[in-house]
């Protein structure tokens, strides 16, 4: 597997000196890192390090105090979150986030929004193109549900799913939005070991479909197994960056995790 550290290819995502201050509290002091296309890059760090805040900045849910986020050369910090998703930068949420009152199938169908074109007039006039589009989308939904292994739950209300299934559904919704870059915020949180194992497979298969992945995860075994690169954040600063085997041996990283207690450093 090429680590592409000194490749001439421009990275798909470049975070440049991003800073986030919350009225006095410095959540991110200054953060710069890049995500090469086609890789799984993990962003790790103790609780409160600023990982979710970084996701919020990249996906337009939060305007940074300073700095830039370049996606294939476009500065994302000026765009609204839905425009950013429109470019193919799609995130999941740390807290389980689904359309609880809709069926599993409709959840994923809603996620396909940006792959459709149908608007009010076409819908009201029942244009043939709209019907064809719906048909296409429904097939794609079935495929995505099969991919994450939720086909048998398609007609169930999303709110009735078990916790682990809801986490998978969150990913299915994001996949439906056809991401080029997928940001996963602690996707394995709360899963048992066998679920986590299955989950790692899903993430790797997403990458194999050509989707670049930026992963925030506390499960170190998962991070070290599937990442191509790891970026370590502590107190709003990047303290280390590199391939997993290098990060594992980095004394600053060990210190950061030990200083916080070892509960998250398992594996």
């Amino acid at each position: 597997m090429s680590l592409a550290l000194d490749t001439t290819d421009a990275p798909i995502l470049e975070v440049r000196e991003v800073a986030v201050h919350f009225s006095g509290l410095i959540a991110i002091a200054s953060m710069s890192f890049a995500v090469p296309e086609g890789e799984i890059v993990s962003l790790i760090g103790p609780n409160g390090a600023g990982k979710t805040t970084a996701f919020n900045v990249i996906t337009g849910f939060l305007k940074p105090t300073g700095g830039k986020v370049l996606f294939r050369g476009t500065d994302l910090t000026r765009l609204s979150s839905n425009r950013i998703a429109g470019l193919g930068v799609v995130r999941t949420f740390q807290r389980t986030s689904i359309f609880a009152g809709c069926t599993v199938f409709d959840n994923v169908l809603t996620g396909m929004h940006r792959q459709g074109r149908a608007e009010t007039w076409g819908v009201l006039l029942r244009l043939a193109s709209v019907r064809a589009e719906t048909e296409r989308m429904r097939e794609a939904v079935a495929e995505i549900l099969a991919f994450v292994g939720l086909s048998h739950r398609a007609d169930e209300l999303a709110g009735n799913l078990a916790y682990g299934e809801q986490r998978l559904l969150g990913i299915a919704i994001a996949l439906a939005a056809d991401p080029k870059l997928l940001l996963l915020d602690e996707p394995a949180a709360g899963l048992n070991p066998s679920e986590t194992e299955a989950f790692m497979g899903v993430v790797q298969r997403i990458r194999d479909r050509g989707v670049t992945i930026l992963l925030v995860e506390h499960d170190m075994r998962m991070v070290m197994t599937i990442s191509d690169r790891v970026v370590v954040l502590n107190h709003g600063r990047i303290i280390a960056e590199g391939p997993p085997e290098v990060i594992r041996a980095n004394p600053d990283v060990i210190q950061a995790y030990l200083g916080q207690g070892v509960k998250h450093a398992k594996g």
Binding site: V90, F93, A100, G101, I173, A174
Partner: peptide
Amino acid sequence: VALRENESLARSVGID
């Protein structure tokens, strides 16, 4: 409906 159910999630998949 996405707006009703979960606005952040709706925006995250590109719904204006």
